[in-house]
Amino acid sequence: MLRIDDDQYQALVAHARAEYPNEACALLAGRDGSAERVYALPNAEASPTFYVVEPKAQLRAMTEMDDLGLDLVGIFHSHVATEAYPSRTDVELAAYPDAVYLILSLADQDAPVLRAFRIRDGRVDEVELERRTAGVAG
């Protein structure tokens, strides 16, 4: 399970739309299954079918997370024409078993779909994604 705020969700959708028609990618830092920060990062491949987080930007983001005492809780990317489910390439290249992989489908641009998965040892398990409305005390 991963909790994200509605403004984080909106930031991810905006990033995916800004990078369209290429895939967008981002890292989410947080703790205890809650995202606290979104790092919208460049896709070094600038491709509609492939993404690689630009390596120096990746290192900077991960170093900052370490310095803040946050964990990498989520890895986000968009699918511009396919469903929000890990592709074969997503599974083959998944190297962060402790992170939740979030995929946003823009196949229907008016109705983006965001889903979340664990990808471990070639196995995909969907996990619950909880979207919290910011500003509501709870």
């Binding site: 895939e23 990618c25 890292l27 491949e45 491709s47 079918t49 492939f50 993404y51 690689v52 987080v53 390596p55 990746q58 290192l59 991960m62 890895i75 990317h77 699918h79 396919t82 489910y85 890990p86 592709s87 390439t89 997503d90 290249l93 998944a94 190297a95 962060y96 992989y101 995929i103």
Partner: peptide
């Protein structure tokens, strides 16, 4: 020296 797996994929 730091080693990081790339964050990569695609669909």
């Amino acid at each position: 020296v730091a080693i990081l797996p790339a964050v990569a994929g695609g669909g």
